[in-house]
């Protein structure tokens, strides 16, 4: 066997091994969580609040809290993110100012989430005086997800064929009429996919909410934007490291991990499925 063929074979084996290792790890993580957590999973687990220092009961409060956080975060992030994406795709001129803005947003995407947490603490909790609350935590999550949202919607708008715009302008449409009647509807499916993927990301974040509004324990679900909330990721952190009866809460902890994992995986694979379907539709 000559050297080239040998190198070829080695690389094939290596890349297979790498792919196999990665797949194995994912399967191991999910398998581990399923094995440890599935025994506590039941409808009651989802609809009962934690009881007896969290050693019994379910996860209704953190589950609802996570949904509330995601909902409020998206309420702020979607309009701002989509509008900024629209600005970059349709209005921004190709100059220095735009490059700097773009660079800023790209860099924001690389900022560690705990830094967003500290930023949220100083801006929303302290400076604006919201206190640790649903509102402050959701706004922090909204900031975290903005770069993703902006980039995703910008790409979606840029992907709308120029042919559509030409046809619209040639019929005497103004720029805003063209955007509203042609560009937005054509880009909507892709924008929505981007939003779904951001939701998946936001639902699983811990660091941005732990200083800004996630509660160690709350007796009931938040009824106001200014109450603290329990949230699944932080609940897991509490059960695993900071509870009073760590051994007793272990099964509940894994059950919670399983629910969070299913929630995030479900949302993300929904988004990915939608994206691939849309890509197929577009190609037709």
């Amino acid at each position: 066997m000559d050297g080239r063929r040998f190198a070829d074979m080695m690389m094939t084996v290596l890349s297979w091994a790498a792919a196999l290792l990665l797949t194995g790890m994912v399967v191991a993580i999910i398998g581990f969580v399923v094995v440890r957590g599935y025994s506590v999973l039941s409808l009651d687990f989802l609809i009962e609040p934690p009881r007896d220092s969290m050693t019994r009961g379910g996860i209704m409060t953190p589950l609802v809290g996570t949904l509330q956080l995601v909902g409020v975060a998206m309420f702020f992030a979607i309009p701002v993110g989509v509008a900024t994406g629209l600005y970059f795709a349709e209005y921004a001129r190709d100059d220095m100012f735009t490059s700097i803005l773009r660079l800023a947003i790209r860099s924001l995407a690389g900022v560690p989430s705990v830094v967003f947490g500290l930023f949220g603490l100083s801006l929303f909790v302290i400076l604006l005086g919201f206190g640790p609350s649903l509102l402050a935590a959701a706004l922090t999550l909204a900031c975290l997800t903005l770069p993703l949202m902006v980039t995703a919607s910008e790409q979606a708008f840029l992907a709308v064929p120029k042919d559509y715009r030409d046809a619209s302008y040639a019929l005497g449409a103004s720029k805003w009429q063209t955007i509203r009647k042609v560009v937005l509807p054509a880009a909507a499916p892709t924008v929505i996919t981007g939003i779904i993927l951001s939701v998946g990301r936001v639902a699983g974040e811990t660091a941005p909410i732990m200083f800004t509004g996630a509660a160690f324990f709350a007796p009931h679900i938040a009824r106001s934007l200014f109450s603290e909330v329990m949230a699944l990721p932080y609940h897991i952190y509490v059960l695993a490291t900071a509870g009073t009866f760590i051994e007793e809460t272990r099964p509940i902890q894994y059950g919670t991990v399983l629910v969070l994992l299913l929630l995030v995986l479900g949302i993300c694979s929904g988004g990915i499925y939608m994206r691939s379907r849309l890509r197929r539709l577009m190609r037709r």
Binding site: P161, D163, Y164, D166, A167, S168, Y169, A170, L171, G172, V182, P185, A186
Partner: peptide, 15 residues
């Protein structure tokens, strides 16, 4: 543009 219509090289109906 309302008075001067245009048809393009590639058929481009809106979706």
């Amino acid at each position: 543009r309302r008075n001067v219509g245009m048809v393009f090289q590639k058929p481009n109906p809106f979706p």
